[in-house]
Amino acid sequence: MRLSELKKGEKGIILRVHGHSLLRKRLSELGFVSGKTIETIRFAPLGDPVVYKILDSEISIRLATASLIEITLP
Results as ranks from 00 to 15, higher is better:
T65R: 04
V17H: 01
H18E: 14
M1I: 14
G35K: 00
I14D: 00
L73Y: 09
F43K: 11
G12S: 14
L68M: 13
G9T: 02
S67L: 00
S28E: 03
F32I: 02
L55P: 05
F32N: 02
F43H: 12
P74A: 12
P49F: 05
L27V: 07
V51P: 04
I61C: 09
E5S: 14
D56K: 14
R2C: 11
A44H: 11
D56C: 09
P74D: 08
S34K: 14
V17R: 02
G19M: 09
L55C: 14
K7H: 08
D48P: 00
K36M: 09
L63Y: 04
I14T: 02
R16N: 06
I71S: 13
R42G: 11
P74W: 08
S57A: 12
R62Y: 08
L3K: 06
M1G: 12
G9R: 00
R16T: 00
I41G: 08
G35D: 01
R24Q: 12
K36V: 14
A44T: 04
R2Y: 13
P49S: 04
S34V: 13
L30W: 02
K8A: 13
E29W: 03
P74S: 12
L6N: 00
A64W: 11
R16C: 01
S28L: 00
K8Y: 02
T72A: 10
G19A: 07
H18N: 13
L55I: 14
G31M: 08
L15Q: 12
K53V: 07
Y52I: 14
A44E: 05
K36N: 15
R42I: 15
M1W: 09
E70C: 13
P49I: 03
L46D: 15
S4Y: 01
S21D: 09
H20W: 03
S57I: 10
I61D: 05
S57H: 10
G47E: 08
I54A: 05
L73N: 09
T37C: 07
G9E: 00
